[in-house]
Write a protein that binds this DNA or RNA. Sequence first.
DNA 1: AAATCTTTCAACCGCAGAACG
DNA 2: GCGTTCTGCGGTTGAAAGATT
Length: 346
Amino acid sequence: MDVKGRGRSMSSTIQIDEDMDLRRGPWTVDEDFTLINYIANHGEGRWNSLARCAGLKRTGKSCRLRWLNYLRPDVRRGNITLQEQLLILELHSRWGNRWSKIAQHLPGRTDNEIKNYWRTRVQKHAKQLKCDVNSKQFKDTMRYLWMPRLVERIQAATVAPANTSIAATTTTTATTGACSIGSSTSTTTTTTNNNSNNYHINNNNLDVQTGQMLLPHGVAIGHDFRGAQVTPSYNTPENSSTAGSSDSFGAQVSPVSDLTDYYNIPVNNNPSLECFQASQVGYQDSLTSPSGYFNNGLDFQAMEQSNQWLDGGDTSDNLWNVDDMWFLQQQLNNNNNSNNNSNNNI
DNA sequence: AAATCTTTCAACCGCAGAACG
DNA sequence: GCGTTCTGCGGTTGAAAGATT
């Protein structure tokens, strides 16, 4: 039995409730075995009576928690995957702190684990951005930056290592005014020019019909990620290494012209934004959103100064990198230019 | 190597609603 | 219908582990 040496796991912290003769604090291996054996023989039931009948000097609550969060055979341990992160962000945007409801869509994950993930990772980032985790600002950041970023990384992770010539391909594409979105594949890249948003996609988990991100267990992300992948078409160390061949998901998806389904992209009035139009679906929308937070809300300097954001910690959790910051700056510049042009035309 | 700070996560707490007698 | 008990949920705590100084 793996009893992790974290949290309240030191036996020295175990307390006995004198009045009730109940144990508190970390569970011992013996207690775990007792609970497992009892449930194996009798099944789950009323937790208080279960605790008594099993001879555990614990509250029913404590037994239930221990079983559900730790001992249950289908509890999944280990790092939260990128797909799970994306799903958590998505479901939290829908339901808020409904941890148990969110957990129902992540088999093997407990509400406690998801809650902990949210608090330790997501809220930490909000704090670094100096904005409230429930603010529109922060929610927009999640939706338009992190989630597309996660999609990108999921795709990159599922694509085989690459033929570096692809980077040159995408760079060339960019210089000709078209946008290359996502990770081009060396074998089956599909480039289509039948609409104004000239891009190609390697959308491993995209549902072609709906544009939704598909995740395990039949869950579809509510956002339409068609074209939302944010890998810019210029050559960067990052995107130059994300090319590959078709993978198990196998979906080479044709470009989808209607990018307005979810993000409601305005008609491209500004030639200078043409290349960004397709590749920056989420960005474009947020740049024109009433909140306008990209111009004045977020403290990107603080983010840059944060090792956690830029180059520290678990890469699966690190949704920001130098390329992102550079790209965001370009976005801001372009947007400002666009606004200036618009103003001049008035 | 030691001290200090930060992160992680198991476990507890209080509350609300459901179930029971 | 009413009081009590149980269950489940979300918020919080705090100790160990890890990182940094």
